[in-house]
Amino acid sequence: MALKISGVIILISVVCAFFTGNVASLTEAAISGGTRAVSVAFSLLPMMCLWCGIMKVAEHGGILNTLSRLLSPILRLVFPKTAKSGDGVNEISTSLAANFLGIGNAATPLALAATKKLGCEKDGIAGDDLITFTLIGCAPPCLFPTTVVALRAASGSTDPTSVVPAVIICSFALCFLSIILSRILAGARR
């Protein structure tokens, strides 16, 4: 996907530069663009290392299990069908817990494990609980947006974590909205 998007962006840029007469600066930008990627990746390194290291220690200390235990009573309300069968609640809560802590790398395989448990209805039709879970995954509730904070720090922000409260409020509001929407639509089906 990243490749296709780059292709489209480059094509639009070249055409646009032709019309605006910015061809010289376009060439310069094309040559220097890659250097920025390397400096961004390097400036991300310290924060990513530190955060992932801390989170791994926390994981070994059982933070994911504790969080997921705290979450599961709420999740039983949100995923009624899954809760009834009892299978999959654990996977859902662990993957959400990983999202909470901003460890995206860990969250993806956990989420896939959860979708396997949720499965689908006959003829490949997505069930209500799977849809709810997908909607939450599209706007996951987050307590600490690791990459954003790291990028802000790398870009010389005076207070990289200043946006964390706003991210928490916004992401939880969106999660709530996703749940309400999918519950309403699930009800409308019957």
Binding site: A2, L3, I5, S6, G7, I9, I10, I12, S13, V14, C16, A17, T20, N22, S25, L26, E28, A29, A30, S32, G33, G34, R36, A37, V40
Partner: peptide, 12 residues
């Protein structure tokens, strides 16, 4: 690749 494209996008 992406930042090359994005830089071009701004410059153009």
């Amino acid at each position: 690749l992406l930042l090359t494209a994005v830089s071009m996008f701004s410059a153009s």
